[in-house]
Structures are given as structure tokens and as C-alpha cells.
Amino acid sequence: MTTPQNGDRRPAPGSNCPGKSTISRRALLAGAGTAAAGVGALAWYGSDEAGWRADTLIAKAPQYDQSLVSRIARGLKELGIGPSQVRGKRVLLKPNLVEPSREAPHINTHPLFVRAVAEVFLTLDAAQVTVGEGQGHIRDSWYVLEQSGLETVLDESRLSFVDLNHDRVFVAKNAGHRMKDRFLYLPQTLRDADWIVSLPKMKTHHWVGATLSMKNLFGVMPGICYGWPKNVLHYNGISKSIHDINATVRPHLAIVDGIVGMDGDGPIMGNPRPAGVIVMGTNLPAVDATCCRLMDIDPWRIPYLRMSSARLGPVFQRHITQRGEAIADCRTRFRLLPESGLLPR
């Protein structure tokens, strides 16, 4: 594996975390800024997608049980990921724990899903598997772990956890160039990982249509630099921020928990939506585009996916080789709020 960051360096004395961008004064609520960013992206994608091609895999998984381990292992094998790629490597699993509540477990990546992925990587002889999160709505990471049920799983599986909100930080050049910020502050744990694996929940999102593996990367941005919520990213435009974070961090793999997702007023207040699928792949825009098709959402209406086309990966279905189950056999309609930041058809 190559190191995931480019041009990174440690912060020098007097370094600055990102400051204000002047994109939208109303960007607290992000809708206006996001839509504008998406429209601007119209000119950026090309039908050839610059030669981008990617494989994604869909696996059926009706429930959270021990069979997840074999389902995920088979999927990775089909994607060409085995012991030779993983042996001796340090793996960082980034679940989505945005704002846990015992009453609403469908907000978060399911703890048993995280454990299953960890078991798979350990079986493939990973040197270390760490779970990391920098949730955006609450500072107390141990509260997040406790309320989500992940703490118990981490204890039982002897997995370590890193609070990415309060980790050491380093500076990386912004490789995406859509945000105004020329540099991004990122947690040191990312630089120490050989595999950065995004483990999102399959959810609708009331500002950008859907939150999947790319949006999940908001949760690597350290809160001490970006706040709670990470308002700097809202002011920069959510979609531009998603694009640039992914362009800079370059995560290596996504495995989406679509067993029970969320629709309606996601990412927090929506309804549980059983979809019974796991989606995985090494190219995150392709994985997210596939998830959108499974959710019966046009991926071209998702601003950050349109922005990522031909830059970070393929979005056109014809450029994504679909492995495992067919989309048509697994599609579940996810209800969207009337105004969910979708671009026009």
C-alpha cells in the first residue's frame, strides 16, 4: 500500500488550523452552499470519467450475526484483497458514530458489523486493527462508544480505539482544491495506518441526499481544529469538503453497513430502513454510486458524487464492474425528505 496522504508535514510552531471561508454566510445549514457547489460541479465531470474504472461488490446480509465474517471475507477475496495485501499491515476502521442513542441504533454502523470487519482483517494477518472516530456532534467519544454499544464489542474483541477529534494532528496539502483551505489538518492516526477503511451506515442525508463512505470521512477531521459541529466544513460547502477530504486522505477501502440503514430525515433523526446488503470496494465514489442505486437514488443528483466523477472515481454505472449480487435484485427504496440537497435531474 502507498501512504495515504500526499505532501504532508508536521505542523510548525505557529501553524493554523483552517479558518473561515467566505463561501456562504448561510452555510450553517449547508443547503444553499451545497447546492451551489453541486451546480458548479456540473462542468467538472466527463462522460469518459478520465479512464476511471472500479469494481464494487454487493453481498446480501439479512441480519447482524456471525455470518457477517464469512460474507465480508468472501467479498474481499472477490475484490482481490487477501493475506498478501493485508499481512503485517496496520488497519484503521472508521465507522460512523455521528450521534449515538440507545433508542436509535440505526444511526450508527452496527457494532457487530465493526467487529466482523475487524475479525476478517485479523484473519488476514493484519498486524494491528484500530477503530477510530472523530464524531461531529458530540465531544465525548467514550459516551459515543458506550451509547452505541461499540464499547462492549471493543472490550470483548480487545480492539483499540482512537479518538480522532483529540488526536495529534498533522498538516496535509489539500489535494482536492475545491475548498478554499490550502491545507487540511488531519489526525496522526491516519498517517500511521496502511489501510484506511471507511465503514459507513447506508443513510439518507437531509443536506446532501445520502451519507455513505465518502461523507463518513468528515469523521476523521479533528474537532479541536474544526469544532463541534465541524462548522468550518459547512462554511466551505459540504460537498466540496467531502471531495477534498477524500482526495487528500485517499482511503483504501469502503465496506458499507446496509443491513439496516436509515431513510427520511437522516443522518440522525430518520427511520430504520432494512436493506439487507453489504457494499464494498476500493474506490469510494464507485461504492457510493452503487449504494445510491441500491437506495433508488440517482447518484448524479448527489452533489459530491457528481463533483468526484472523473476526479476521484467513476460514477457511471457502465464504468463500475458490479460483482456479487445484482443491483436490481437488492434495490430498496429509501425515502428522502422533500428538500434533501439533491441536484436537478
Binding site: C17, P18, G19, K20, S21, T22, L28, R139, G223, C225, Y226, G227, W228, P229, N231, V232, H234, Y235
Partner: peptide, 12 residues
Amino acid sequence: WPWVEGTHSWVE
């Protein structure tokens, strides 16, 4: 007061 200057004000 905001977390980061130039952004909105928050509780903490």
C-alpha cells in the same frame, strides 16, 4: 462565540 472564527456560535 464560535469554535473557529468566522463561523457560527455554539454552546460550549
